[in-house]
Amino acid sequence: MSRETLKREAGFPLSAYLICLQGIVGRELLRFLHQRERFVAALVRPLVWLFIFAAGFRQVLGVSIIPPYSVYVLYEVYITPGLIAMIQLFNGMQSSMSMVYDRETGSMRTLLVSPLPRWFLLSSKLWAGTLVSVVQAYAFLAIAWFWGIEPPLWGYLAVLPALFLSGLMLGALGMLLSSLVRQLENFAGVMNFLIFPMFFASSALYPLWRVRESSPLLFRICELNPFTYAVELIRFALYLRIEPVALAVVSGCTVLFMVGAVLAYDPARGFLARQHDAGGHP
């Protein structure tokens, strides 16, 4: 954004931006409270993986001592960070799906005709969605504790910035996708082609050294997958460590996806106008 544009749009005091952010976050939380089934569904999915899948594969899939763990860990301990990232991945995609829905029904327009800069409105929406995913992640961690998943107590605090960063990255990716998709029906397909490959081709369910042993190609794909780094960022943070490569990749991807989403929703350069060009009038 050029200095000139910033100057022109700087007609609002800082308090107006804060009020706007508060309003968008508040609305997202209210919607979340009204859709309790969404909260339950978001928790059931990873809990099924934890209670059933991990229990079943505990004996088959052994995990050697790898950082950040200093001792042998049970398989369910290993996959917990991956399941937290899974919650955030699904939440990011669900938020984006609701953006496509809002766009189709028209309520997205209410947001976009606000006089505040569009980059700020989209960023606020992203923060709001991320906050919801962080609440879900902590609820999952609380239930997992009763299942014997007990990271260090300070790990619960240390993981908070990692959760925000990974949530922002996955939310921004979803937002970028929502701008590329014309209809809600198409978005379901995109989700299937994106969510499952992203989840399975990562370190969420198995360590990468094991993947490299069985398939060097898949290992390369996992290395190129930003979701892998979100999982590792959460895993290390939960055990009070920082993984610098994961931190750099997740931060970089967050900025990249966010810039892409803002450009996509820009009326002059965005894909939305081009979609209408190709597909008829509103």
Partner: peptide, 15 residues
């Protein structure tokens, strides 16, 4: 959202 909440959201969007 309620009538009040809809208006509050719009007010927030205008700062």
């Amino acid at each position: 959202l309620t009538v009040r909440q809809n208006l509050a959201y719009h007010a927030a969007l205008h700062g």
